[in-house]
């Protein structure tokens, strides 16, 4: 066994997918266009959900990376302008190992001592097993990420079942049907590797001005529950690039006037969350402060 002391894998992660564009069908009107969000920003979000993960190669077992992964997720509920924990946060620690390529006795001994996740559990045993340490590390990282998503989804489902106030989730909501259909959940996506616009509609989205949103579209894929989504410019981009201050919002799918009213209302909620600024986070232009606070909370409890 070789001891390893590496930086968090999340910091070393390479871009996982190339940028792409997908077309989507508008659910309010027929044309994708910029729409000024009517009315003043309104405080509507009651709570914020986020998750964090930290992975690190702790040792190499005959060249196989043993990755320690820690994940946590929490909902921070707002009361009197202050945020506090809603229920206990979810936390887990585990060793992420490819069981088929690790000595069985070693694997069994590790299972006795701590939680162990097999990172090759979904690989067809009939196929050649991956052995490249980089490949194995990437699989471990993916497994940790899934664990974090599971934790986030678990909290989101509980919220959707028990609460009747809006929860803002950092990321999309389409991964879980119960959450995706809940009227009390809003997802905010900050990155735009995939743009759900095509053709002339691209100009409308990238040209959004502060306080404007795009037409809502339906987002559907075989493995995800359909949701309604739209782009919203939180801050004036100026010369700082087309994605500055641009978020994509996901809510339960509705159509017609209903989705218009819903998109306007949720947009007003998000515009209200521009203050306080989430600085010093590098993503401050698209991150609401509640999510940053939640992330800091989780980071501190993972220490």
């Amino acid at each position: 066994m070789t001891q390893a002391a590496s930086a968090p894998l999340e910091a070393q992660r390479e871009v996982d997918a190339p940028p792409r564009v997908e077309s989507a069908t508008p659910v309010e009107g027929e044309v994708m266009r910029a729409r000024a969000v009517p009315g003043a920003p309104t405080v509507g979000v009651a709570a914020f959900l986020d998750g964090v993960q930290r992975s690190q190669v702790r040792a190499y077992l005959n060249g196989v990376p043993a990755v320690h992964g820690a994940v946590a997720a929490a909902v921070r509920i707002r009361s009197g302008r202050r945020l506090s924990a809603w229920t206990a946060p979810i936390r887990s620690h585990a060793l992420y190992l490819p069981k088929p390529v690790v000595d069985a006795a070693v694997f069994a001994a590790l299972v006795e001592r701590c939680a162990v996740v097999d990172t090759l559990a979904d690989v067809d045993p009939a196929q050649p097993l991956p052995r490249h340490p980089g490949d194995l590390t990437a699989r471990a990282l993916t497994a940790v990420q899934r664990e974090r998503e599971r934790a986030e989804q678990a909290l989101a489902i509980t919220w959707a079942r028990e609460q009747r106030e809006p929860l803002l989730i950092d990321g999309g909501i389409a991964g879980t049907e119960e959450v995706a259909r809940s009227p009390f959940v809003v997802g905010v996506v900050k990155s735009h590797r995939t743009l759900y616009v095509a053709g002339d509609a691209m100009d409308a989205v990238l040209g959004l001005r502060e306080g404007e949103r795009s037409t809502a579209v339906a987002l559907a894929s075989p493995r995800r529950t359909p949701v309604a989504t739209w782009y919203l410019r939180l801050r004036d981009a100026g010369a700082r690039g087309p994605f500055f201050g641009l978020v994509r919002v996901e809510v339960a799918l509705e159509t017609g006037d209903t989705i218009t009213a819903r998109a306007d209302l949720v947009s007003r909620w998000l515009l209200a969350e521009r203050a306080p600024v989430a600085l010093p986070d590098a993503r401050w232009d698209v991150m609401v402060y509640g999510i940053r606070e939640c992330e800091q909370y989780l980071t501190s409890i993972l220490q």
Binding site: R81, R82, A275, P276, Y289, E293
Partner: peptide
């Protein structure tokens, strides 16, 4: 003063 959340 009108920010919906107070800073930590």
């Amino acid at each position: 003063a009108i920010a919906p959340t107070e800073r930590t």
